[in-house]
């Protein structure tokens, strides 16, 4: 029984955190916090961080980090807007946005593996490069684009109404399901864990560590690219200054969800719950009219508490 509980705790942990936040704000009782309309709003607000967190989960499991995702989101949103503005159709624009992210991730992965530079430094560099590139391409202003179905992806009133959530939210859920399955049930998923758990062993066992890493960063980049497309959909413009610092929210979501920065641990579902937890926290603070600094302090406390709980769990063994 105790054994079962010990195995369940890391999976339940993020849910308990989410339940705590929900209970907290329900107790304070802002108007409409638990309403379905608010749930829908929060879900839509979670899409950007959630998508970023999916790819980041892979990176963190492999023992790496990607600091560039915030900038890549901005770059992808600008590219999407520019492609639409140039008269191409919406699908092409989406592909261009996701492709931009994929390319950034690929460059990250290649620099990390081929030059042997630690991920922190490479992606810190990419953070600057992608942001600068976005500003250059957008001429340092917001890029307007003709309306298309991309903006419908993030609408709060989806058509048809039975969808309940915005299409972007469903996309997040579907991608999460696929990536969770890939992590559990494919050779690539096992190798992701192996690289993060003990890279030397993975190498000795014939795992193509370089390939696995490049693929992981490319995947993370592509997820950020998709998040960028969604960000464009939400803002209806390509904004080179958007998603500033979002990488930290994304990393926080993964860590709250049970990811270990030392590698070898992390769960897609956990990261998703982590992303929702942060959205609800922001949303709750907004509803009670608390200043943003309260929200920032709370998120900071929750990150530290999540990791501290994780440490306690490990120490208890």
């Amino acid at each position: 029984m105790k054994e079962r509980l010990r195995k369940l705790l890391p999976i339940l942990g993020p849910f308990l955190g989410l339940a705590f936040v929900l209970a907290l704000f329900t107790a304070i009782g802002p108007e409409g916090f638990l309403s379905s309309y608010n749930f829908r709003t929060v879900a839509t607000q979670t899409v950007i961080v959630g998508l970023g967190a999916l790819g980041m989960t892979y990176v963190i499991i492999s023992g790496g980090i990607d600091l560039s995702v915030g900038s890549v989101i901005a770059l992808a949103s600008v590219i999407t807007a520019l492609v639409l503005d140039a008269g191409h159709d919406a699908l092409t624009a989406c592909v261009a946005g996701v492709g931009t992210g994929l390319a950034c991730g690929l460059v990250n992965g290649l620099l990390i593996t081929q030059l042997g530079i630690v991920p922190f430094i490479v992606t810190l560099g990419m953070l600057g490069i992608a942001r600068g590139l976005a500003k250059y391409l957008a001429d340092e202003q917001k890029v307007d684009a003709p309306t298309s179905w991309i903006t419908d992806l993030m609408t709060k009133a989806p058509e048809p109404a039975w969808l309940f959530f915005a299409p972007g939210v469903w996309l997040l859920f579907a991608l999460a399901a696929v990536l969770a399955l890939v992590l559990r049930s494919t050779v690539f998923g096992t190798h992701t864990f192996a690289v993060g758990s003990n890279e030397a062993t993975a190498e000795l066992c014939g795992v193509r560590v370089t390939r696995v890493k490049v693929a992981i960063y490319a995947l993370c980049g592509a997820c950020a690219g998709l998040a960028g497309v969604m960000q464009f959909g939400r803002l209806t413009v390509g904004d080179p200054t958007t998603a500033m610092g979002k990488e930290l929210d994304i990393i926080a979501a993964v860590v709250i969800g049970g990811g270990s920065l030392a590698g070898g641990e992390g769960r897609i579902l956990g990261s998703l719950v982590g992303a929702f937890l942060m959205s609800y926290l922001a949303n709750g603070c907004n509803l009670i009219g608390a200043p943003t600094f309260i929200q920032e302090i709370l998120i900071g406390c929750i990150i530290i508490a999540a990791v501290a709980l994780d440490r306690l769990r490990h120490a208890a063994r």
Partner: peptide
């Protein structure tokens, strides 16, 4: 030379997973 986060079976067949 083992990956501590992986299970016994994942370690035993690491790099040679039946797939």
């Amino acid at each position: 030379n083992l990956a501590p986060h992986l299970s016994i079976e994942e370690n035993v067949l690491l790099g040679r997973e039946p797939a």
